[in-house]
Amino acid sequence: MADSIAHAQAHPDGPADPGRRDFIHIAAAAATLGGVAAVAWPLIDQMNPAADTLALASLEYDLSKVTLGQQVTISWRKQPVFIRYRTPAEIAAAKAADHASDLKDPATDASRVKAGHEQYLIVLASCTHLGCVPVFAQGDYGGWLCPCHGSQYDTSARIRKGPAPLNLVVPEYAFLSDTKVKIG
């Protein structure tokens, strides 16, 4: 850039140090780019969840409302969550399949529930393929079938067949008491 400027000068009066000049222009360009980059952050960050959305990120639920063999769907962070009170048969089936060869995303049943509360399975009700809500008691594995593209989950909500790549996600949760759970 400095060269073209030197040529454009109408009244050159002696040479100036071209290295110093280049430095000034490079510094100016760098400062401009840096400023633009810094401004970009607020413009992007504003799209992240706002404080009021984050504040609703945890949810307490009373499990005494769920009876044996029943499943409820609740809304957590605007996403559906299954809370399933599994029958002993379902738990046994899930444990039996812990090392089945068709597990795409191998995980033991114990890793997907809390010790001492094996009867409660809590998972995001969102198929890991493209996000539809799976339906219970359909498919070949006694668990869930996604109506959109036929992914099949077992009684531990692990993917067994179909296009979905991963098991239904277990959200972060903790038991506050035997009947009270805090999700998030």
Partner: peptide, 29 residues
């Protein structure tokens, strides 16, 4: 405009409570 609600009840709240308090950098924008 991504955070604004153009309704009589929602407009004031979406600006003063949403944008000015809760949205990340909303006060700055």
């Amino acid at each position: 405009a991504m955070h604004y609600d153009p309704s009589g009840v929602g407009a004031f709240m979406s600006v003063q409570r949403g944008i000015m308090r809760d949205v990340n950098y909303g006060w700055l924008l």
